[in-house]
């Protein structure tokens, strides 16, 4: 891989300030002081929970740890340790009973299908706790994942607000270092945790350092396929990334509504998200 990581450089302290204010403002507008974060033991949810803690105070953040049985027990321990370090409440909910019950009735051999079901089960629990707590679910999808569609739609992608979605994975790492996220979490290989041994970089097919440079070139740089290849990336890799972006467009937009009337939801009945809050 060629190319320098300079274009991905961020001023982490400034980014922290903006994101902390964003979380505080969005919740404040709704008269809501509390936030919920699904803690996986990974980097993104650790950064998100840390930002929420700085924005709202530890007493107003709840971390939900939702393992499938005894799989990923290291991650569960890491997540609990992080919650204790941040001084936030956390709760552990094993999703194995409902998942096993469902797949006993509707068996599958697809691990993606099982993984997606688990991601949506976690979403369902987060939203239930959102009502119990009177708090907002914070999203943890980063820009790299959003662009290549590496996430479960209506699963881990579901949230009330997402403070992380304009930071590439490598930038989340830089922010994590600034936020002093424990080294054990920062040094782990990123994983969606859908099955043991899964890693993002094996699924996506290239390391985040290169993926992020390609994405940055295409998105911020508005470069063409040819220009990105000329910048030093293999044509096959660039094409793979372009395919992933194109195929996952539906995950980044609300579903289209068939227009019939003069003025329709989603077409020309247009109000800001933050209206009148």
């Amino acid at each position: 891989m060629k190319g320098s990581s300079v274009p991905l450089k961020i001023n982490a302290a400034f980014v922290e300030k903006i994101l902390v204010a964003f979380i505080r403002d969005e919740l404040g507008r709704c008269g809501c002081a509390k936030a919920l974060v699904g803690l996986s033991g990974g980097l993104d949810s650790a950064v998100c929970a840390t930002l929420a803690t700085r924005a709202l105070g530890p007493e107003n953040v709840l971390g939900l740890i939702m393992p499938y049985g005894r799989a990923f027990s290291d991650d569960v321990r890491g997540a609990a340790a992080l919650a204790r370090k941040l001084g936030i409440r956390h709760e552990k909910i094993d999703i194995a009973p409902q998942i096993d019950l469902y797949f006993a009735a509707h068996p599958t051999t697809s691990r993606v299908q099982r993984g997606n079901k688990m991601a949506r089960e976690r979403m369902s629990i987060l939203y239930d706790f959102s009502v119990r707590e009177g708090g907002f679910v914070l999203g943890t999808s980063n820009k790299s994942e959003l662009l290549v569609g590496y996430g479960t739609v209506y699963g881990d992608m579901a949230c009330a607000i997402n403070p992380m979605g304009d930071l590439y994975k490598t930038q989340v790492r830089e922010l994590a270092a600034h936020l002093r996220i424990p080294a054990a979490i920062r040094s782990k290989a990123p994983t969606a945790g859908l099955w043991p041994g899964q890693t993002d970089e094996a699924d996506i097919g290239l390391p985040y350092e290169e993926l992020d440079l390609i994405l940055h070139g295409l998105v911020e740089g508005r470069k063409s396929r040819r220009e990105v290849i000329e910048a030093g990336h293999a044509a096959a890799v660039v094409d793979r990334v372009l395919r992933m972006i194109k195929r996952s467009g539906f995950k980044r937009a609300l579903p289209p509504i068939a227009k019939l009337s003069i003025r329709s939801v989603g077409h020309d009945f247009l109000y800001p998200y933050d209206r009148g809050k």
């Binding site: 001023n11 400034f14 903006i18």
Partner: peptide, 9 residues
């Protein structure tokens, strides 16, 4: 505001 690579702005 757009672009966060720079200083405190």
């Amino acid at each position: 505001g757009r672009g966060v690579a720079g200083g405190q702005a």
